[in-house]
Design a protein around this nucleic acid. Sequence first.
DNA 1: CGCTAGAAGCAAGGATTTTGCATTAGTGTG
DNA 2: CACACTAATGCAAAATCCTTGCTTCTAGCG
Lengths: 182, 182
Amino acid sequence: MVRPGGRSARVQEAVHTAVRELVAEVGRDALTVPQVATRAGVTPSTVYRRWGDLKELLSDVAVERLRPEAPPEDLGNLSADLTAWAEEFLDEMSSPPGRAYIRDALLGDPDGGNGGQCSAYAAEQIDVVLARAADRGETAPDVETVIDRVVAPMMYRILFRPDGLDPAYAHRLVTGLLTAGA
Amino acid sequence: MVRPGGRSARVQEAVHTAVRELVAEVGRDALTVPQVATRAGVTPSTVYRRWGDLKELLSDVAVERLRPEAPPEDLGNLSADLTAWAEEFLDEMSSPPGRAYIRDALLGDPDGGNGGQCSAYAAEQIDVVLARAADRGETAPDVETVIDRVVAPMMYRILFRPDGLDPAYAHRLVTGLLTAGA
DNA sequence: CGCTAGAAGCAAGGATTTTGCATTAGTGTG
DNA sequence: CACACTAATGCAAAATCCTTGCTTCTAGCG
């Protein structure tokens, strides 16, 4: 039986907070489970039993932190909406902390659920943009197509080639998708 | 002074071999540095000093394992060459060990050099395919374009959505790139 | 051949991870 | 509302792993 409420929830919250604070204070490489546990007012064994591993805990925290906080802005047309969203996405994700969160989310991920969650967040945001476009009567590509043509290239470069990324790249990807035909 | 030959090389070889064997035997999660050291006939402190960490060692081994062994096959035309390469790439990389290697390569990567190396391997292979096409007089897209349109989408799905990947997806990406215009 | 410096061995000390058992606190039932 | 049931946590000991100072070995060089 899973217990999402009560003490378990408080412990999870305290541990997550402790991780975020300590990452900011001592850095991610110097982080240890006993440190986190002490800060959270919990015994290490609790952390080990619930998360099993420091990297799984970091993965959990990372996914929470990668959840978008607001729906994408409405600028009046698909091209502007998608460009703005892509530029912000690239900016956030390509920053050192952003890259660290992505890597953490992917790495401590036994069953691939956390990576899928990140992808789902992006898909949701894109879905909102595309639904607006459809409401306006604009012809819009598929969500999967946007992921293939815009999200995937940005993510690939963030992970494998962190150098030389700028907002113009996001812009190029979006216009390449919308003009050349979906 | 760096010492690429002699004992250092033998130790590196022994350790790498030990890692590959033990990953196959006990699995990657159960792997420990002392285990690897014992199998390699080396003391743990040697491993810690040279690699600093289990994940950096795994990253090293992963990059070596991700290096392509042969240039891509020549099937007579660009479309066939690229499709064949993409299908093989997807097949290898989307398998559980392939995904594990990619993740390891990205993880223990202090300066981002190992991820870049993986990307460079793919770029090299694609370069060969495109150079052949140019020799034949075929019009061929840019390497960067192939990465954006073929490699990146495959890698994104491998990392973030490991389910439902088949060779047909690689085929679709290539034809989408070559027909719709680069 | 002898010198030098980088790399590995050894061992002790400290920190982390694991695990069995006792206790606490949600959850559902009567 | 009280009760039983069970997941989740705390505690502490044991095992394992990581770090580090020092010594020994060996490749490269004059």
